[in-house]
Amino acid sequence: MRNSSAEKTPWVRQQLVNRNRLAVWTAAYVLTMALASFGPVFLWDGAVAGSVLAIGLNTCVGAGMIWANIRNLLGLDEMQQRLQLEAMGISLGVGLVAGLSYENLDISNVIVSHAQISWLVMLMGVTYLATTLLRARAYQ
């Protein structure tokens, strides 16, 4: 019989590895995104080569983050995977519908400002977080 308080199984250890790896890749993605966004103003004075390098680096790190996310999802147990699938499905639906409506508001000049993708990213992030929390609660 295992002592749950003292022992970590290979599955539990692998989950920690997967989670930490995803956290590192996500942090790297955020940092390289900041570099690509603010670099032209504060670091290389608008030089195109600097921006191309920073954006290329950001894209490559983004690919690494996607890989880390896939590894993390595959390492979850079946209920956790289902929970994530539900959260992803709802986030995708909300993002698609709200994003297209937002764009239509811009095209038809109902809103003054231009549609910004950052609002869509934030909406999808908040939806994903809220759905994950609500669905996790529903299973308890």
Binding site: M1, N3, W11, A136, Y139, Q140
Partner: peptide, 26 residues
């Protein structure tokens, strides 16, 4: 005499998953 966490370790799933199965939610 096992806790949910003990059974979770045996089955390589989370304690929350054991709870959801026991309560019929999953």
């Amino acid at each position: 005499g096992w806790t949910q966490a003990d059974l979770a370790l045996e089955l390589d799933v989370s304690r929350q998953t054991i709870n959801a199965i026991e309560t019929g939610k999953f």
